[in-house]
Amino acid sequence: MKKISYFNVLSGIIMIFFFTSISYGLSDVFKENIYYPKNLKPTDSVLKVKVGDRAPDFTLPAVFVEKISLSQYRGKKNVVISFVPAAWTPVCSDQWPGYGIVKDIFDKNDGILLGITVDNIPTLFAWTNQMGKLWFPILSDFWPHGKVADSYGILRSDGITERALFIIDKKGIIRYIDVHDINKRPRLESIVKELEKLN
């Protein structure tokens, strides 16, 4: 009986270690400026939209651009919205820089990417400046705090957003939703695959 308990514990520890520990491949570009939160609850909100719904419209201030509205892309572009929880945190800092080198894939699929967080514009300016020159707009859902995130149902109880992706077609209809485990980065190929379906 004691041996069974020993192996249960041993295998449990190994499984927990490999399947639940958080890994970061964080770039040296952010130096010591990253805040490391504890392992967060994977999701902490209830979606208010579903695939097939018309995407709630919004107008938000953006870094380098005064305002951007979702509706301005209607009939022109497929829109990928990437909500990330917070600036200056590890996984978020390790997500948008990768999107920065795949503009050609978005162009090929008539796509535009909108990056959104609930941080304010100065914070987003300083943070995204570390990522090189991003080709896509970065929007601030800071005030009223998280209003857009809440309209999609991805505002968490602590005021940050989920790590979520929404793909909206040229008619303004939501075609894909991925409310991802906040502790992990979504695979790029999942976005590309869904975007290609719209073409």
Binding site: G25, S27, D28, V29, D94, G98, G100, I101, G132, L188
Partner: peptide, 10 residues
């Protein structure tokens, strides 16, 4: 390296 790393890209 990583494709998500600006320094690696640069």
């Amino acid at each position: 390296l990583s494709m998500y790393c600006p320094h690696c890209q640069g």
